[in-house]
């Protein structure tokens, strides 16, 4: 009881949290071009524009001075709430603060780029072949897929973990922004942390994978210790090295 009383007397508490955030990666600093594209997007998916908080990333822009105020106004007019700016020069940082926005240092996107190389080498995406009704999305942005992922199929969880209740067969591919969990044999390709999350992992009941990748660091079937084949394992990154350890 004493604890509750104490808490009630405090005006607030600080808590660390990781919230999902949409990053708006600017390729142009021209407010008019941004307005045009936003109008088009708004008509396509109005549900997305519900005062959604966004971080404006100006990392790919090479301009020391931005019309930040006008860009923010365009966003707000389309029901997007800019809450912070990422990257950019010192004047950009100053004007962000002046507008009451936060500022984040540029992201280390090197890892993500490394992965793009892996993911696009020979993956022929076949999204129209994914089996309707077998994959359901969870509230946290992950996906649960029930059934066998078959050769030629690709199942992706673009925002969270992917759980497969079944096997992933040779020639199939499973991808997730977070971790990949396979409650069955993993015979195909599994890519975890596709947006560069180095803490993601791959977990499976029977390892026979053609390819394992976490945040762009990969191993082929050939590179896997034969002793581990057929066993239940976890695959994680440590010091940019892909490690496979037994779960039994």
């Amino acid at each position: 009881m004493s604890l509750n009383v104490e808490r009630a007397s405090m005006a607030f508490t600080f808590k660390g949290g990781m919230l999902p955030m949409t990053v708006m990666e600017l390729a142009s600093a021209d407010p008019e071009r941004i307005r045009e594209q936003l109008s088009g997007k708004l008509s396509q998916s109005p549900a997305f524009f519900q005062h959604t908080p966004v971080v404006l990333s100006v990392e790919k822009l090479d301009e020391p001075h931005l019309a930040l105020e006008r860009i923010c106004a365009v966003c707000r007019a389309h029901k997007l709430l800019p809450v912070a700016v990422r990257g950019g020069s010192d004047p950009v940082k100053q004007s962000a603060w002046a507008l009451g926005l936060g500022w984040f240092p540029p992201s280390d996107s090197g890892r993500a780029r490394m992965l793009e190389g892996v993911a696009t080498t020979d993956a022929a995406p076949a999204p129209d072949e994914s089996v309707p009704g077998r994959a359901e999305s969870t509230a946290s942005g992950g996906r649960i897929y029930r059934g066998t992922v078959r050769s030629g199929q690709q199942v992706t969880a673009p925002e969270g973990d992917l759980v497969v209740i079944g096997a992933v067969n040779a020639g199939a591919e499973v991808l997730a922004a977070g971790s990949v969990h396979v409650y069955g044999a993993l015979r195909g390709r599994a890519l975890a942390g596709i947006h560069g999350d180095t803490l993601a992992g791959i977990f499976c009941r029977e390892l026979r994978a053609e390819l394992l990748s976490v945040a762009g660091n990969y191993k082929r079937l050939e590179d896997i210790d034969p002793q581990l084949l057929g066993t239940s394992v976890q695959v994680t990154l440590s010091d940019a090295q892909l490690g496979i350890t037994s779960l039994t």
């Binding site: 129209d128 994914s130 089996v131 309707p132 066998t148 078959r150 050769s151 030629g152 199929q153 067969n169």
Partner: peptide, 9 residues
């Protein structure tokens, strides 16, 4: 296996 995937989609 590939054919089974097509049958399901």
């Amino acid at each position: 296996d590939r054919i089974l995937g097509l049958l399901a989609s």
